[in-house]
Design a protein around this nucleic acid. Structure first.
Lengths: 180, 180
DNA sequence: CGATCGTTTCTGTATAAGAAGAAATATTGA
DNA sequence: TCAATATTTCTTCTTATACAGAAACGATCG
């Protein structure tokens, strides 16, 4: 598949940002490609379009599946795996936040709870104890609230965020328009 | 400085998570150390406590300053630089979100705007155009709303988040207790 | 204006991550 | 069951990052 100029720009940029977002370039590029393609692609086509090794596509797809950002679909009379991502930005955002939460927050919550429960905690200074306590409390509030937010429908969310209806429409449009 | 067991655990964990959060181990460890120490430390003491090279401390501190997470302070009659971070979790959170926004969001906003403004945009399919549009709209809504949230006082914020007053108190306690 | 102490920059090395290509495995259709 | 094709795993090479140690630089005090 030949990429149009803007699509290419978008994919290359997404790839560069990938490293800052905690995924490697190829993973981010594949996701961007699937997002813009708007139709399922097979691994071969992805590899050719992005000029990366076939195996690299395979591994990257696996990582995207771990994030639940990519699904497998099949076409009648074709035994290849085709891959697609959601066309809806809000859905993608939810999945990404969930993934980051699991990787970047949850382990810390566990450790903080263990620290606070430990008998060694008594040996710590009052200040340390308080700060560890506050850190845990803060992170719990934040994640609880984030979970609630993620359960919302885009419309409800936009109201909650106090955003005008005009932009809300733009976001809402996407699931309808995606043809699947 | 000898670290107490829980402090050490906290610092080591913070360091491990650092890589997932986009900063290296030493940077995260130093930040954790300053957070728990509750008093300004000089570079030498940091290096000894964490058993890292003096130059490593110097560079890591610079990165923490770029995040605005660490400040320099001086003690009368002592020409060394002492470093401290905020004891208030909410303040730290704000600085981190701001930093990540600059690094992880703003460049993408620019590129998306450029893409949409480009004459090449006409060559793109309707679906691509819509998805790029929606991506930008979504990210703009989100950042605008985040900016508003970050300007809030903890108390206001907690009300907005619909969190009970009891936890709000825990968060509020910290600026008062920090002795500076 | 030296001497001392602190800070920054530079350079080499070790480690980890990314990606390609080859090899092995699995699946389908004839 | 065999041949053809698709997919995954393994190995190797490359690149990027982290870190230590040394050297250079800068500032302050006597």
């Amino acid at each position: 598949m030949e990429l149009k100029p803007v699509t290419e720009r978008f994919i290359l940029h997404w790839g560069e940002m990938g490293s800052r977002w905690g995924v490697n370039r190829t993973v981010a590029q594949i996701h961007a490609l699937l997002f813009l393609a708007g139709r399922p692609l097979d691994a071969e086509e992805i590899a050719e379009t992005l000029s990366v090794a076939r195996s690299n596509v395979s591994n990257s797809i696996k990582e995207l599946q771990a994030w639940r950002l990519v699904r497998v679909v099949h076409l009648m009379g074709d035994r290849r795996d085709y891959f697609e991502t959601s066309a809806d930005v809000w859905t993608l955002f939810k999945l990404i936040v969930e993934g980051r939460r699991q990787r970047e927050i949850d382990p810390t919550l566990s450790v903080l709870r263990e620290c606070l429960a430990s008998p060694d905690m008594a040996a710590e200074s009052l200040g340390s104890r308080q700060r560890i306590n506050e850190t845990l409390a803060f992170m719990e509030i934040l994640t609880t609230w984030m979970d609630e937010m993620l359960r919302m429908q885009p419309e409800t969310l936009m109201k909650t965020l106090g955003v005008g209806a005009k932009i809300s429409k733009v976001v809402r449009k996407s699931p309808a328009e995606s043809k699947r």
